[in-house]
């Protein structure tokens, strides 16, 4: 069965389709790149122990004692970051604000890590 007649130029349906597709993709950008509302809590670990679990909804500044000294962690506007840490490379500080469920930042020298929890636990990745 062939589609006849063979159309040689854009039809109205083509144009409508292109607009709908572009609109849906635009909407997806807005929906998927917005801050994650399923991120609920922050878990703070130090030297292998869970130190605190805090709500992302409230603003906090917490001092956590790690292997080297005190790391300063800030929770603000449903985001979390390392403000300062007694490590030399400051990778944890440079990784900036984290806002999505499942995200983790850590200061490995100080053995302090911060993990955002969502409604359900997800995997970081699956390898096989």
């Amino acid at each position: 069965m062939s589609i006849s007649p063979l159309r040689s130029s854009l039809t109205r349906a083509d144009v409508i389709l292109l607009f709908i597709a572009a609109g849906l993709i635009g909407w997806l950008y807005m929906a998927l790149w917005a801050p994650d509302s399923t991120a609920l809590e922050v878990e703070i670990w130090s030297r292998g122990q869970r130190v605190q679990t805090l709500s992302l909804a409230e603003n906090h500044r917490i001092e956590v004692t790690g292997a080297l000294g005190v790391s300063l962690i800030e929770i603000k506007d449903a985001q979390v970051r390392f403000v300062d840490s007694p490590c030399s490379n400051k990778l944890c500080v440079h990784s900036g604000w984290q806002r999505h469920a499942g995200e983790t930042t850590a200061c490995l020298p100080n053995q302090v890590s911060v993990r955002i929890l969502g409604r359900d636990r997800r995997y970081d990745a699956i390898n096989f």
């Binding site: 292109l18 597709a21 997806l28 994650d36 997800r122 990745a125």
Partner: peptide, 24 residues
């Protein structure tokens, strides 16, 4: 099946944009 991580969803609009352009 392979990567059930919510981070992957951030790629979806980018990949669909590419698909739209290449489709055209």
């Amino acid at each position: 099946l392979f990567i059930p991580h919510p981070g992957l969803l951030h790629l979806l609009p980018v990949m669909l944009t590419a698909a739209l352009l290449f489709g055209v």
